[in-house]
Every structure is written in C-alpha cells, then in structure tokens.
Nucleic acid binder design. Structure first.
Lengths: 224, 224
DNA sequence: CTCTTATGATAGTATTACTATCTTTTTAGA
DNA sequence: TCTAAAAAGATAGTAATACTATCATAAGAG
C-alpha cells in the first residue's frame, strides 16, 4: 500500500489512528459505504463490525462513538479538498482563476483520483453532502470546536476567503461567502436530487456543471 | 384559549392533531423546550412524557416517532413565517421593499408576538436554526417529500422566489437564491454563535442586525 | 345518562450504545 | 529467534431507546 498524500487529522477524533492499521482502514472504508447505504441514524458500530467481520469492541477501540467517526470522515473530506485546491491552484497567478478552480473542486472533488485505496471519494462526497452538517449541529458543538474538531473545515473556509479577498479586497463578507460557497455546493446538489423546487439547477448523470455555473455567477456578481 | 391564526399542517405529520387537544398542545410546547435543551439526538418521548406528566404511549398516539415530530415543529415555523411575511408585505407595492421585509422576517420572526400560547417562537426559531435541516437530511427524504411533508418549506421558498423574480425578472436563479436566503439566515446566525470563523458577522444580545445587513447586501448585488 | 374517545398504567421486546474482561493473534525489537 | 507488548477477537453484561400491546379509567358530546 503506497500513500501519496498524508491526510492529517486532529488526534482527538480517534482513540487509535485508523489510517495506520489494516483494521482501521477497513473501518474507514466500510463506514463510508455503510453510512451512505443506511444513513447516519441507522448506522451502528455493530452493523459495521459485521460487515468487516470484526467485533463491536474492536471498532470502539478506534472511535469513541459514531459521532466522532462522522466528524473524522467529514474532516477527511475537507482536508482532501484542501489538498486538491492546493495542487490545482499552485501555478495560477490570477485570483479570479484560483476561485474558478476552487468552485470546480468543491463540486467535482469526487472525480479526482488519489492513491488512497481505503476511501471512495465519490461516495464520501455524497456522504458529506447528505450528513456533513450533522457533524456540528449538536449540543457538543462548542466543546468539540474548542477541541479543534472542526479545524479542517475552518481552514478550508479560511483559505477560500483569502482568495475572495484577493479578488476584491473591498468585499465586506469574505468568510461568509467562503462558507456559503461550500454550503451551496453541497445543498444545491442535494436539492437538485431530492427537493428540486428549492433550486433552479438540475443534475443529470452525475453532471454537476449547472451547480458550478451558478456558483460562478453568484461570485461574479458579488465580487464585481 | 383563543387562536388568532390557524397553522395548517399536513395531516400525515401526526396521528392525532396536537393543536386540538390539551395534551397535544402540551406535547408541542414542551417538545420545543426539551429539544432545545437536550438537542434532538438526546430528546426522547419518554423524557417528554415525564416533563408533561403523561406517558410515552400517549405521546406516541400523537406522533409516530420523534422524526415526524421534528418535521411538524419545523413546518410549524415555516408556516408561521409565511403568515408573518403575508401580513407584513400586504400593502407594500415595491418588490424591493417586500424583499426587505422578508429578510427582516427571516431573522426577526422570533420577535413577533402571536397569540398562540403553546409555541414559544423565539425558542422554536433557535430549534430550527440548530436542528432544522435534520428534517430532510435522512434516508426517507424522497418518501417524505412525496407525502408532502416539506410542502411548507417549499411554499415559503416559492413565495420568496416570486418576489425575487419581481425585483429582477432576468435573474436566472430565483429559487436557489430564495432557499439560500433562508439557509444563510439560519446558518450564519448559528456560525456567529458557535463557529464565528465561518462568517463575518457578530450577534450580541440577540441582535441580529448584521445578518440582515449581510443578506440585504447579497441580494442587492445579485439582483442589480 | 351513556357511549365514545382520550388518556393512563403497565408490561414487554428488539435494538442501541456502550463497558468490561479475558484469550488469542500479530508484530516489533533485543 | 525469542519475547513481550500491543492489537484484535470472543463473550458477556447493562442501561437506555424506540417502540407495540393491552386493559382500565376518565372526560366529554349527544
């Protein structure tokens, strides 16, 4: 197994680093598949253990509970997205073009092909779209935030807001626009698939071009 | 008990109409308080029954499960917001001004004083901000949607998009902007309180003026 | 005054979300 | 290669959750 990129995540998210062992990687891989299949509410460590032919107790040695596992998976996605944005904006000078790339990555991250075999990025993206906000919509949000559990999301948002500031230093809401771009990318993909009345775009055959167009249109108008 | 306004909700949301009986109203009132206090995950019908000095079985006679109760409460909020927008835009001619009122209502709905004593609108708003999107981020979203369980949200969004179209008939994303305004109103209030790095606004002493300003700014730029 | 409907009281079940303990297997280093 | 530590497996147990069922009692409408 060769790992080209290292996904660096807050060690408070887990009890034992799942990236480092075979069982840990099986937990990551199959929890993504199983949460996607069952939904986060119906997903349990017992069901996961059965799928990977291990035991509930063993899964609990990696993650305190399924909520921390969710934050872990979602953080993994944000970190990976950051990495993609990094390498795909490296030699771009123009801030406008950088923002174009960012929008593209927000939507088409799934299409990129990394060499981590225990994460199906396409399914992970769907998981983040569907379950992502549950990571921080809890009673523990302040405590979790203090523990740095959302730092990957915040770092990504911060990085995007920096580019927004580059495009237009006078725009008064760079952080809000950054997080809103992420939120819209996810929400409107979800709306298009499940609640189409809440959006104007359509997604057919995994084609998310209209979402990209819309975000570009919003950004162009807001930053002009 | 006098009811000035009637909140009309899809009868598939409940088994027995909670607005019509004393116990039902106690369920509505105290489930809002208890979900707000414990968070939706830790909230149970047993705990609710204890608070209202009834039994679990009795609560189950009104709602099939806590998820449908959540959709009920959230729908109640959207319906009430629609009503507020209705009466507060009635004699306004200008579409721009109507949109201003809508933005104001999205944020300050809690401050309005209706004559329904079994709903604390201020706390219900906080509940919608924190737990609202869980209503439709489930595996049952398509089935629930088919059953019309989200019609209040969709109707509100549709109404807002109509005003957006009035302001600028050439704007290509009226539905998306409408739902995004609702999403932003809630998300950025939440971010300001819990994850301030994700926004640029601050909320102090229940003062949400900056959220309103931001939404107005976005709308002005996008629809110009 | 009675008959229906609503509520209460109680019990029971499968599943969830863990924790604990003990054994076996794997692996890393001396 | 041997050894001891670490990881994983096997198993058991517990309180709480998410219900369903049944029967008795209270309240309200005609």
């Amino acid at each position: 197994m060769s790992i080209g990129i290292q996904i660096n995540l807050n060690s408070r998210l887990y009890l034992r680093d799942p990236q480092k062992t075979n069982l840990g990687q099986k937990i990551i891989k199959n929890s993504i598949l199983l949460i996607d299949e069952l939904g986060f509410e119906a997903f349990t460590f017992k069901k996961l253990a059965k799928v990977i032919q291990s035991t509930e107790a063993s899964v609990y040695r990696y993650f305190e509970n399924k909520h921390l596992l969710l934050i872990y998976l979602v953080s993994w996605y944000w970190e990976w997205l950051s990495y993609l944005i990094d390498i795909n904006t490296k030699n771009i000078e123009s801030a406008e073009k950088k923002l174009d790339v960012i929008i593209e990555m927000l939507i088409e991250a799934y299409a990129e092909n990394p060499d981590i075999d225990y994460v199906n990025e396409s399914i992970l993206q769907r998981l983040v779209i569907t379950e992502g906000t549950k990571a921080y919509h809890t009673k523990e949000v302040d405590k979790d935030n203090k523990d740095g559990l959302f730092s990957n999301f915040k770092a990504l948002s911060e990085r995007i807001s920096k580019v927004i500031e580059e495009v237009n230093p006078d725009f008064p809401y760079p952080h809000a626009l950054a997080s809103n771009l992420i939120d819209m990318a996810n929400n409107h993909s979800y709306y298009a698939m499940h609640l189409p009345r809440l959006t104007d775009i359509t997604v057919t055959n995994e084609n998310y071009d209209q979402v990209k167009e819309m975000l570009s249109h919003f950004v162009a108008k807001l930053l002009k």
